[in-house]
Amino acid sequence: MTYPDFNQTIPIDEIGVNERVARLNSRSIKKGSKVQALKLALSMIDHTTLEGSDSPGKVRQLCKKAKQPYPAMPDLPTVAAVCVYPRLVGIAKQELKGTDINVASVATSFPSGQVPLSNRLDDTRFAVEEGADEIDMVISRGAFLNGEFSLVFDEIAAVKEACGEAHLKVILETGELQTLENVRKASDIAMHAGADFIKTSTGKVSPAATQPVTLVMLEAIRDYYYKTDKMIGMKPAGGIRTAKQAIQYLVLVKETLGAAWLNKHYFRFGASSLTNDILMQIVKQETGQYQSLNYFSND
């Protein structure tokens, strides 16, 4: 494969991006297509807990929720993955044994990545050894903003190698990248360096995922697909709390990349409170009535 010159910038018109997002948001999703979208979104969630206070008990609860989101409706899809810190991967793996729910782990000294590369690689290897199916790494934003694109590229490639069989999601932390052009450039670097997924944010920096940023990343994925025939996945993370937002994201995916990306193998939501809002909407669609949030378990 030929690698692009990452010193060249691909122009992105922010006004145009915002207009496109606004137009996509005007799609009216009703009835059957809404229920289908809600279930699809549920199946794409990386159910996440990334707190300093996370405990084995909390992770076990999280896994139970992942397996059975709403016991009153046993036919609902499970979420795609549970996302935890490396130290808790083993617990999650054990809890999710026998299911097709993956264990994802943030590694590479999440969320800042501010330790030597060797430590970040160790972090990655540890998570993989513990049984992580997917690794969510962070890029060196400082190096990126400093124009050291080769360094960023090489680090991603090194982490990819450390991942072995595990799938690699590369977090660009778009809230720190300042411009949509930088988002585009970081996406291109990550995909060429071996990312299986590109992901917007850690959730620890504001703004986290936004629709304009996601659209730019989806368009980068599309261009990469046109060029290489290879499908890269997309994961917006952070700030997506409502079912309505989730459906808007699905519309973005559907009309930018099409049907092949509308599954958990190519699209994920990184979120913690989204699950319950989606469940609430599904129950509303099935019964005609809204339930209070008290009826949905908070884990």
Binding site: K31, S33, A37, K254, N263
Partner: peptide
């Protein structure tokens, strides 16, 4: 390499 993207299947919008 010229494969077109498929926008029709999987999820269609209901009439609104």
């Amino acid at each position: 390499p010229n494969s077109k993207l498929d926008f029709a299947s999987v999820w269609e919008y209901a009439p609104a």
